[in-house]
């Protein structure tokens, strides 16, 4: 272990700001990418559900007519 205390770990030998800024930006960018992908998937799910309901309605209608 390179650090004696929690405090030293945060300070990073005086470079804490830069190290944590770099890690923070990286984490943020990857989080944006992940969330963006997940949201695209939920949107696709919603679209899929809508399409399914539409097809069900169509089938129902067809049954009623015949």
């Amino acid at each position: 272990m390179a650090f004696d205390s929690w405090q030293a770990f945060i300070e990073m030998g005086g470079y804490g700001f830069y190290v944590w800024l770099a890690f923070g930006i990286s984490f943020f960018a990857i989080a944006v990418l992940v969330i963006n992908g997940l949201r695209a998937r939920t949107k696709l799910q919603r679209e899929f559900d809508k399409e399914q309901r539409r097809q069900q309605r169509l089938a129902q209608r067809k049954k009623e007519v015949s």
Partner: peptide, 27 residues
């Protein structure tokens, strides 16, 4: 990252600032 941030020793020239390398170089 935990190994790099917590356990790896500090660089004798750059101190702890070199720990950015663990994100910078892979990306």
């Amino acid at each position: 990252l935990v190994w790099g941030l917590v356990f790896a020793p500090a660089d004798y020239q750059q101190g702890d600032s070199y720990r950015i390398i663990f994100v910078h170089v892979p990306t």
